[in-house]
Design a protein around this nucleic acid. Structure first.
Length: 867
RNA sequence: GGGCGCAUAGCUCAGUUGGUACGAGCGCUUCCAUGACAAGGAAGAGGUCACAGGUUCGACUCCUGUUGCGCCCACCA
C-alpha cells in the first residue's frame, strides 16, 4: 500500500464494480421494509452544481437503509424544464439569425427532440462521480411517452371532476417569453423608480390627484378609487373624471383596497394591467381595457403617438404629453419592488388573458390535513408552518403556458365550440361528432408534470408491482426554493389521485452559498463546480462536507478547508489500515475476538466503538448527519489511532497471544467504523474494508453495526479517561521543562484502580514514555505532576532544577477554584433550590479540589525540606 | 406590512430538554524526521457566547425589546 490515499485510483473503479454487479437495484428486503426516495429531477439541460451535490444526503439515507437490510430504491430522472429549455434553444436560434416563428412549429419540435437526445443525461452521469447509488435502470424523463400519458390522464381526470377550468383572468405575463407564468415564478426586486402624480379633472370642476409608478397605463384606466371612509373624497364618490390624453370619462368608486395614507389616497384603476385594480374592477363591474400587445408594446390605436411603443419609451413619452396637458403635478423618486420573470429576467406586465386553471381549494384541504396530523413531517420542523401558511392561502393554479415547448394541453375544440379533454387524440368531437377539431395551443406548466413525479416514475396510473412495493416513498429531500413550486404540489396530487402522502418526511437542506455569503451563480462568477472539487479532494471528502453541513438547517458558505480535512481523514483511515494490514497474514480470515484475552484497553475501545455506533445511528434517525460525522472523525482519528493504536504497538510487536487479541480488536473496531462511515464516504470505506478481513462481497451490503451495551463499561471508561489525562499532563510537564527528558525514571502513585494495576502502569509507560520500573533515587532532581488523585514523580536529567514555582502556581489556581465553589455552596438559595444531583456534584468538586490542594501543599513542603 | 432564520475562538461553523464553553476544522505558537500516516505526532495560546432589560439559586440556552445581516410571503398604486 502506498503511504497516501489516492481517491482517483479508487473511486471510479469501485463505482463501476458496484454498477456492474447491480448493487444499486433494490434487493429482497431482510426487514420486510422498503425504503424509497424519489430524486428531484434536475433539468435535463443543466450542469451539476453544489445544489445537486447536496443530494448526497439522499444517498447517505439510501446506503444506510440498504445496510440495514431494507429494500432500498432511489429513483433518478430528469425534467424537461419547458421555459428554461425554450430559452436556451431560442438563444441558439437567435445566434443563427432566425427564430422559432421563422422555422415553424414542426422544425421546432424536431429541434427540441434532437436537443434532448444530444444533451442526454449527462447530468446524471456527473452524479455518478459523487458515488450516488441510484437505480439508473429506472431513469425517467418527464417527456417519456408513458410519462406523457400519465400527465394526460391526470388532466382528463381533473377536467372530468370539474377541477380544471379555462377563463380570462389577470396573470403575470412575461413579454419576452410571451407566456403567462405563475405567481411563484415572479421574482420581485427592489427598484429605484419614480412616482408620478397626475391630476384628473373632476366632473363639475376641480381635480383629483392620483399617484402611479406606471403612468403609461393611464390610457387603460376605467375608474379612480378612494377609500369609502376617506373624508377628503366623500363628496366625490359617484362622480366622474375625464382622463387626460384619451378624454374618456370614468367613475370615482369607493373601495376598501385603497390605502388612505399612500400617495394622495386616490388611485387610478387599470383592471387590465394590475392585479389589485383587476379585483377592484370585479367588485365594481368596471370595464377591462387591454393596452398591451403580448410582446410588451403598447396597443392603443386611439393614441397613435404611443401605439406600438415599448413600455419604457411609452412611459417617457406619455409623461411629456401629460405635462403638456397640465395633468402632471409632480414626480417623486420612489423605491418599490418590481416583478421579473424567474427564468428570463424580463419585467412582468400583468395583463388579462384566457388561461387554464386548477381549482385549488378542494385539493389543498387534504394536503393541509396531513401536515397538521403529522403524517407529513418536515426537517427542520419550521418548514411545516411555511408549508401550511402557503397551502391555507392558496389561490387557483395557472397551469397553462404560451410556450412552444412542453406538454400540450389535451383539449380539442370542434367547429361547434365543444371543448373537451381527450385521453387519446380524437378523430371527432365527443359531443357532436364534428371532425374539424383544433387542439388548444397552450402547453402545461412544467411543475404540473413534476407534481406527479414520485408515483408516475413507479408506473402509475398502471397498477404496477413497483408502485405497490415502493410507494409511498419515505423521504423527499430538496432545497427550500421549490417547497411550494414542487413539494407542496406533489403532496396534493398524490393525495388526490392515490390517496397517500407521497413521502412522510420532507428534508429541507441548506443552500450552498459562495464563500463571501452571496448566492452561488454562474452569472455572478460565484459558482463552484462539484466536479472540480471532487477532482481536488475526492468524492468522499466532498460528500462528507455536504452531509456535515446539509442537515444543519442553515445555509452554508462554501469553504475548502473543511473539505480538505475530510480528505486528510480518508488518508488517516488509509494509514491506520496500512498498519494493521502489515501485521496480518495475506488473505486473513475474519479474526474472532477471544474475550479471555482482552485487556482493559481493548474493552475500552470496544466500548467506545459501541457508544459511537449508537450515536451515529441515532443521528441518522434524526436526519442530523453532522454529529455523526464529528463522532466518527473524532473517534477514529483521536481515540482509535492516536490512543489505542499507539497503546497496542508494543503488543503488536510481541508475537504472542496478546498480539492476536490486540490485532483482532483493532481490526474489528476499524472494520466496524468503516461500516458506520460507508453511507457518508462510500469509496474509501469500501476500499479499506476490502483490504481488511471481511465477510461478504461489498461493504454496501454489510450489515449496519449494532451497539453492544454489555461491553460499555462506564467505570472502565472513566479510568481510561483519567489515565489519558495523566498522560497528557506528564507530556505537558516534560514538554514545558525539557523535551529531551525522555525515558527518565518515574514513580506513580494513585488510588485509581487502573493505575494501581501493572497493566495501567504499562499503558502510562507506553503513552507517556516513562520508565516506571524501580524507584527514583533519594534526593534526585525531579518534577511532580498531580492529576486528580494521581501523582507522578518524574526524574530529571542532572541539570534539571526545581519546579516549586510551577507547583505554587497550580496551588494558586486550585485555591481560586475552591473559593468559587465555596461561594456557590454557601448560597442558601442554591443548596435549597438546585436539584440534589447538582449540589452533590459541586460538593464532590470541592472535595477533590481541596484534596489536590493539600497534596500540592505537601509536595511544596517536601521541596522546602530538600532545599 | 407580516413571518422566519442568523449573530459563539482571527476565519467558517457545532452546541440535544437552562447547572463549570473539554467545542470542531482551518489559522497561530513551541517541540518532534520515532518503523501506519509530516496530508503526520505531541503540547499550547485564543471566547464579557451582538446589545439592553427581565424570569431564575443559576441564562450562550427561556421571555421582552434594540441593532446588524439574510430569506420568504403580501394587492400600498
Amino acid at each position: 500500500m502506498e503511504t497516501r490515499y489516492d481517491p482517483k485510483a479508487v473511486e471510479q473503479r469501485w463505482y463501476d464494480t458496484w454498477d456492474e454487479r447491480g448493487y444499486f437495484k433494490p434487493r429482497e428486503s431482510l426487514t420486510g421494509k422498503t425504503f424509497t426516495i424519489s430524486m428531484p429531477p434536475p433539468n435535463i439541460t443543466g450542469d451539476l452544481h453544489m445544489g445537486h451535490a447536496m443530494y448526497t444526503l439522499q444517498d447517505v439515507l439510501i446506503r444506510w437503509h440498504r445496510m440495514r437490510g431494507d429494500a432500498a430504491l432511489w429513483v433518478p430522472g430528469t425534467d424537461h424544464a419547458a421555459i428554461a429549455t425554450q430559452n436556451v434553444l431560442e438563444k441558439q436560434l437567435a445566434k443563427k439569425g432566425t427564430s422559432k416563428e421563422a422555422i415553424g412549429r414542426e422544425a421546432w419540435d424536431r429541434l427540441v427532440k434532437e436537443w434532448y437526445e444530444t444533451t442526454g443525461h449527462t447530468i446524471l452521469q456527473q452524479m455518478r462521480r459523487l458515488g450516488f447509488s441510484a437505480d439508473w435502470s429506472r431513469n425517467r424523463f418527464t417527456m417519456d411517452p408513458t410519462y406523457v400519458e400519465a400527465i394526460r390522464y391526470v388532466f382528463v381526470q381533473l377536467w372530468k371532476q370539474g377541477l380544471i377550468y379555462r377563463g380570462p383572468r389577470i396573470v403575470n405575463w412575461c413579454p419576452r417569453d410571451q407566456s403567462a407564468i405563475s405567481d411563484l415564478e415572479v421574482q420581485y426586486e427592489e427598484t429605484d423608480d419614480n412616482l408620478y402624480y397626475l391630476d384628473y379633472p373632476v366632473e363639475g370642476g376641480g381635480v383629483i390627484s392620483v399617484a402611479t409608478a406606471r403612468p403609461e397605463t393611464m390610457v387603460g384606466d376605467t375608474a379612480v378609487a378612494v377609500h369609502p371612509d376617506d373624508w377628503r373624497y366623500k363628496d366625490l364618490i359617484g362622480k366622474s373624471v375625464t382622463l387626460p390624453i384619451v378624454h374618456r370619462r370614468v367613475p370615482i368608486v369607493a373601495d376598501e383596497a385603497v390605502e388612505q395614507d399612500f400617495g394622495t389616497g386616490a388611485v387610478k384603476v387599470t383592471p387590465g394591467h394590475d392585479t389589485t385594480d383587476y379585483e377592484i374592477g370585479e367588485r365594481h363591474h368596471l370595464e377591462v381595457r387591454s393596452i398591451l400587445h403580448p410582446d410588451g408594446r403598447m396597443n392603443i390605436p386611439d393614441v397613435p403617438a404611443l401605439d406600438g411603443l415599448p413600455v419604457p419609451k411609452a412611459r417617457a413619452h406619455i409623461v411629456e404629453m401629460l405635462r403638456a396637458e397640465g395633468a402632471l403635478q409632480k414626480i417623486e423618486p420612489y423605491r418599490h419592488s418590481v416583478g421579473h420573470c424567474d427564468r428570463c429576467g424580463a419585467v412582468i406586465e400583468p395583463l388579462v388573458s384566457a388561461q387554464w386553471w386548477v381549482k385549488m381549494k378542494p385539493l389543498a384541504g387534504p394536503a393541509i390535513a396531513v401536515a397538521e396530523a403529522e403524517h407529513l413531517r418536515f426537517h427542520p420542523e419550521r418548514w411545516r408552518e411555511q408549508y401550511l401558511r402557503w397551502m391555507r392561502n392558496i389561490r387557483d393554479w395557472n397551469i397553462s403556458r404560451q410556450l412552444w415547448l412542453g406538454h400540450r394541453i389535451p383539449v380539442w375544440t370542434c367547429a361547434n365550440g365543444h371543448a373537451v379533454a381527450y385521453l387519446k387524440d380524437p378523430a371527432a368531437c365527443e359531443q357532436c361528432g364534428d371532425r374539424q377539431l383544433t387542439q388548444d395551443p397552450d402547453v402545461l406548466d412544467t411543475w404540473f408534470s413534476s407534481s406527479l413525479w414520485p408515483f408516475v416514475t413507479l408506473g402509475w396510473p398502471a397498477d404496477t408491482e413497483e408502485l405497490r412495493r415502493f410507494y409511498p416513498t419515505q423521504v423527499l429531500d430538496t432545497a427550500r426554493d421549490i417547497l411550494y413550486l414542487w413539494v407542496a404540489r406533489m403532496v396534493f396530487m398524490s393525495l388526490h389521485f392515490l390517496n397517500a402522502v407521497p413521502f412522510s418526511e420532507v428534508l429541507i437542506h441548506g443552500t450552498v452559498l459562495a464563500p463571501d455569503g452571496r448566492r452561488m451563480s454562474k452569472s455572478l462568477g460565484t459558482g463552484v463546480d462539484p466536479l472540480d472539487v471532487i477532482e481536488r479532494y475526492g468524492a468522499d471528502a466532498t460528500r462528507a462536507w455536504c452531509a456535515y453541513f446539509g442537515t444543519s438547517g442553515q445555509d452554508i458558505r462554501f469553504s475548502e478547508e473543511k473539505i480538505k480535512s475530510y480528505q486528510l481523514f480518508a488518508n488517516k483511515l488509509w494509514n491506520a489500515t496500512r498498519l494493521l494490514v502489515s501485521k496480518l497474514p495475506a488473505r486473513a480470515a475474519p479474526l474472532p475476538i477471544d474475550e479471555a484475552e482482552l485487556e482493559p484497553a481493548d474493552i475500552w475501545i470496544l466500548g467506545r466503538q459501541s457508544t459511537v455506533t449508537r450515536l451515529v445511528t441515532s443521528s441518522f434517525e434524526r436526519f442530523e448527519f453532522g454529529p455523526a460525522i464529528d463522532a466518527l472523525y473524532e473517534f477514529s482519528w483521536h481515540e482509535f489511532a492516536d490512543d489505542y493504536l499507539e497503546l497496542i504497538k508494543p503488543r503488536l510487536q510481541a508475537g504472542d497471544r496478546s498480539t492476536a487479541a490486540a490485532l483482532a480488536v483493532a481490526v474489528n473496531v476499524l472494520e466496524t467504523t468503516l461500516r458506520l462511515l460507508h453511507p457518508i464516504m462510500p469509496f474509501v470505506s469500501e476500499e479499506l474494508w476490502q483490504r481488511l478481513p471481511h465477510v461478504g462481497e461489498s461493504i454496501m451490503y454489510a450489515p449496519w453495526p449494532l451497539p453492544d451495551e454489555t461491553i460499555e463499561d462506564r467505570h472502565l471508561m472513566d479510568e481510561m479517561a483519567h489515565l489519558l489525562e495523566v498522560v497528557r499532563a506528564v507530556r505537558n510537564l516534560r514538554h514545558a521543562s525539557d523535551p529531551r527528558a525522555r525515558r527518565q525514571p518515574a514513580e506513580v502513585s494513585s488510588p485509581r484502580p487502573l493505575l494501581t494495576e501493572p497493566v495501567g502502569r504499562r499503558y502510562l509507560a507506553t503513552l507517556a514514555q516513562l520508565e516506571l520500573n524501580g524507584k527514583l533515587p533519594e534526593g534526585a532532581p525531579q518534577m511532580v505532576v498531580v492529576v486528580g488523585q494521581t501523582t507522578v514523580r518524574l526524574g530529571l536529567p542532572a541539570d534539571g532544577g526545581s519546579d516549586a514555582e510551577r507547583l505554587r502556581g497550580e496551588l494558586q489556581k486550585k485555591r481560586q477554584e475552591i473559593e468559587l465553589i465555596e461561594a456557590k455552596l454557601n448560597n442558601p438559595d442554591f443548596t435549597a433550590k438546585a436539584p440534589h444531583t447538582v449540589v452533590e456534584r459541586e460538593r464532590a468538586r470541592l472535595l477533590q479540589a481541596q484534596q489536590a490542594a493539600e497534596r500540592l501543599l505537601g509536595l511544596l513542603g517536601d521541596r522546602a525540606e530538600l532545599g
